[in-house]
């Protein structure tokens, strides 16, 4: 049944959507605006989008300060390694769940789902203990290992679901053509799973990039801090450097924004079409 929308309802709908759009985008817009102002001008009333203090000074300061650049480097290292490890481990685990039958498959699967349901704050103290005991406190590995616990379940579940949609005859075919199961996975299944891999990869990167709580607790020295902590370090007892915080936030958001734009074209369905008769 097709119902024609009246003009009025269309206009109303548009207004509501625009209002929600502004509501959602406002913090980001305000972040951008503030990053170009000097700290003192931020609280002027009425607020101006661009005032006489407009400059790129805070950006230059951030990008020339070795301490702050180190925050970025740390975040890139931790997030990058987490993405790579999550995908490698997750893909192989998902393949096993999708293609093999083994003892305790269901309980293990339930456990993986269950891990996600536990609030992270509950795990903070046990992890702290484990990380200290493993002598990994204040290292990249402290963050990487804990982030893997957060990102792997999602990756395994997503990839298992995706692999289940791919015909087992593809694996069989590779094995007959002269390859191993390993070859079937990395040579055929993974290349045609790009849409799922991109979304899992992005989710993983965002999780690692944005994480605050564990980064705060499991690292100690300034040279090991990541961006979320680095931004927070700008809040001192006597001074809130808002414009600096905002410019760091903008720079911190950029990688995710760029990744989204870059990988957008991979979010297309039907990468596997043509393999199997539908």
């Amino acid at each position: 049944m097709v119902r024609r929308q009246s003009k009025l309802s269309k206009v109303l709908l548009s207004i509501v959507l625009i209002l929600f759009g502004i509501y959602a985008a406002f913090p980001i817009i305000w972040m951008l605006i503030c990053s170009f102002k000097q700290n003192d001008y931020i609280f002027y009333w009425p607020p101006k989008i661009i005032d006489e203090s407009f400059s790129f000074n805070t950006y230059i300061k951030v990008l020339t300060d070795p301490v702050k650049l180190r925050f970025f480097l740390n975040s890139y290292i931790v997030s990058g390694v987490v993405v790579v490890l999550t995908l490698i481990i997750g893909i192989m685990a998902a393949y096993a769940f999708s293609r093999y039958n083994f003892k305790f498959k269901k309980p293990i699967n339930s456990l993986i789902v269950g891990v996600q349901a536990i609030p992270q704050i509950v795990l903070l103290i046990p992890y702290m203990g484990i990380i200290v005991a493993m002598k990994l406190f204040n290292t990249y590995w402290a963050l990487i290992l804990t982030y893997l616990v957060m990102t792997l379940p999602y990756c395994i579940l997503m990839m298992t679901g995706y692999f289940n949609t791919l015909s087992k005859e593809l694996d069989d075919s590779v094995r007959i053509d002269g390859g191993s199961r390993f070859r079937a996975l990395w040579g055929v299944l993974v290349p045609i799973s790009t849409p799922a891999l991109v979304s899992v990869g992005l989710y993983t990167f965002m999780t690692a990039w944005n994480e605050y709580l564990f980064a705060l607790v499991l690292t100690q020295t300034t040279n090991m801090r990541t961006i979320p902590i680095g931004i927070n370090l700008l809040i001192t007892e006597h001074n809130y450097d808002w414009s600096m915080m905002m410019s760091m936030s903008v720079l911190g958001s950029l990688p995710i924004l760029i990744l989204f734009l870059f990988f957008q074209k991979y979010f297309i369905s039907g990468m596997s079409s043509g393999a199997i008769k539908e």
Binding site: E169, P191, S272, G274, A275, K277
Partner: peptide, 10 residues
Amino acid sequence: VFQNYALYPH
């Protein structure tokens, strides 16, 4: 030769 062809789509 498989029923569903099992060609490598990429």
